[in-house]
């Protein structure tokens, strides 16, 4: 039997009602999305795109107006599906009168963990996010970054199969961000699926296997990071010396861009032929890699074009 998709969304719609029809907000306009088991999936979108609305519907924190959504093969709203889900909300708020470890025990009980399981899992989760030494500190004494780490610890406490993270690195320093990225990668290695909702495009680019770009309640693009950022059949070839002189050896199939050659080669054989010609011309190569744009450029391009197209 095949493993069900951790997240399967079909034609999902959400309209926030208002007394006047003109004031109604269509937060989600019939989106389709499938997240595969064991991948880190990034959801990108400008403010107000509908990202948090989608996550809230998946966790039954909000209700859909139409369409279908399943979590680990069960309809959203079924509490059994949420047993295997960890969630870090944006601007998480803990009971501030509790100590860090007491907060995790409380949330672990709500996740149906036994006392014996919690006894082992709580220190391990605190250690994983670097808060073991602060386990007896009151949550109200924690900084924003520490609260985020504690939020991540509670999301991972019950070893969920699916982890949904809403802006997990918000307020976290660069070292903490790196540690959180490492945790996400370890989760993927352990077979868990991660759904990441983030504004930090560079981080999404670093850790995500696939991403979706959402704007104005619609999925504009879905694919792997490489698929989205790949620059057609072009390759970036860095050379020693003047790239303009080297470009002469390849004719019109090469251009100079940002201090390197960008070579048009539809196949690997064509790329190797181009390299042979450069070597024959005495050019020394220092790097060859697929030409790509940054995810940020792609994101801006997709969103701007999406807004220009008629709905």
């Amino acid at each position: 039997m095949t493993e069900p998709s951790p997240i399967d969304v079909r034609g999902l719609r959400k309209t926030y009602r208002a007394l006047r029809r003109s004031k109604r907000i269509e937060a989600l306009r019939g989106i389709d999305l499938e997240v595969r088991p064991g991948e880190i999936f990034g959801l990108l979108g400008p403010n107000g795109a509908g990202k948090t609305t989608l996550v809230k519907i998946l966790l039954a924190i909000g209700h859909a107006t139409g369409g279908q959504a399943k979590l680990l093969g069960r309809p959203v709203g079924d509490p059994r599906a949420r047993r295997q889900v960890g969630y870090l909300p944006e601007n998480i708020r803990f009971p501030d009168f509790l100590h860090a470890e007491d907060a995790l025990h409380y949330l672990g009980r709500l996740s149906r963990m036994s006392g014996a399981d919690r006894k082992q899992a709580v220190p391990a989760a605190l250690e994983q996010v670097g808060l073991l030494e602060r386990r007896t500190s009151k949550v109200r004494t924690f900084s924003k970054g520490m609260l985020q780490r504690l939020g991540l610890a509670q999301a991972l406490l019950h070893r969920p199969r699916l982890v949904l993270l809403d802006e997990p690195t918000d307020g976290v320093d660069p070292i903490g961000r790196k540690e959180i990225r490492d945790v996400l990668v370890r989760l993927r290695e352990g077979g868990a699926t991660v759904f990441l909702n983030s504004h930090m495009l560079s981080e999404v680019e670093r850790v995500c296997d696939r991403v979706a770009i959402l704007d104005q309640g619609q999925v504009l693009r879905t694919g792997s990071v490489e698929e989205l950022t790949r620059h057609g059949n072009r390759w970036r070839v860095a050379v020693e010396g003047d790239p303009a002189a080297a470009a002469g050896a390849l004719g019109p199939s090469a251009t100079v861009l940002e201090g390197a050659l960008e070579v048009e080669a539809p196949t690997v054989a064509a790329l190797n032929a181009a390299i042979d010609r450069l070597r024959a011309a005495g050019v020394l190569l220092t790097e060859v890699r697929p030409a790509s744009t940054s995810l940020e450029d792609v994101f801006i391009d997709v969103v701007e074009h999406g807004r220009e197209e008629p709905k």
Partner: peptide
């Protein structure tokens, strides 16, 4: 949000 995300 945190409470409602739990299986309760």
């Amino acid at each position: 949000d945190l409470l409602l995300s739990k299986p309760i």
